[in-house]
């Protein structure tokens, strides 16, 4: 137990830092641009699910090169977010659902992509979905630089650390739990897509 105490302490501290920020996000987002940026990728359930799917996917990584697709896709998401914030125009929420569905399917099937085309498609789709999330937040931003630094930390560094911490574990139960969670996200996204189609 003691062996993992440091990791749990780290995750708990990160959560403790994030939770009050999340609670305050609606209240005073304009004053604390860095905090608003950290919280921004997690505040909406759709982009939150995308990041959860990315973390789960990273948990399945077995070697260092497995990190490459993850980093590219996460970078696409964050860059898209930045572009969206700068553009500030309205876009459709569909790309983010499709990206989440693709990522969660990879998690459920425990598939780590090796083909460059597949990685490129996912990265581009992540970029598009990032654009959507960014456009959505653009109207509340007073300091884009601070906000984007926050987005980079919240959308890339936090899930990367959490995923790497978890990926170190080889427990069968963990692998199974990751796939079960992935299947839940696929199910949620399928239903959301159908409901949006009906609407």
């Amino acid at each position: 137990m003691r062996r993992y105490a440091f990791r749990y302490a780290l995750i708990l501290s990160l959560s403790a830092v994030l939770l009050p920020a999340i609670a305050q996000a609606h209240v005073d987002a304009k004053s604390f641009q860095l905090i608003a940026g950290i919280v921004h990728p997690w505040i909406n359930l759709d982009s939150g699910f995308t990041l959860v799917a990315l973390v789960l996917w990273l948990c399945q990584a077995v070697k260092a090169t497995d990190l490459i697709p993850f980093i590219l896709i996460a970078a696409g998401l964050v860059t898209g977010d930045g572009v969206g914030i700068l553009l500030g125009t309205s876009t459709e929420p569909l790309p983010i659902q499709i990206v989440t569905l693709a990522l969660a399917l990879c998690v459920t099937l425990s598939y780590l992509p090796t083909r460059r085309t597949w990685i490129a498609v996912l990265t581009f789709a992540a970029f598009l979905s990032g654009c959507y999330a960014g456009c959505d937040a653009a109207r509340d931003i007073t300091s884009p630089t601070l906000f984007l630094v926050g987005v980079l930390s919240g959308g890339l560094i936090f899930p990367l650390s959490a995923g790497v911490l978890m990926a170190e574990r080889t427990s069968v139960m963990l692998r199974v739990s990751v796939r079960i969670l992935g299947s839940w996200i696929v199910a949620i996204d399928l239903m959301v897509l159908a409901l949006r189609l009906r609407a």
Partner: peptide
């Protein structure tokens, strides 16, 4: 079973949602 049930159930739900 717990992985496949929600997935297949979601497909059924899609059919229900789309009528």
């Amino acid at each position: 079973l717990p992985v496949s049930f929600p997935l297949i159930m979601a497909l059924g739900a899609v059919a229900g949602i789309l009528g």
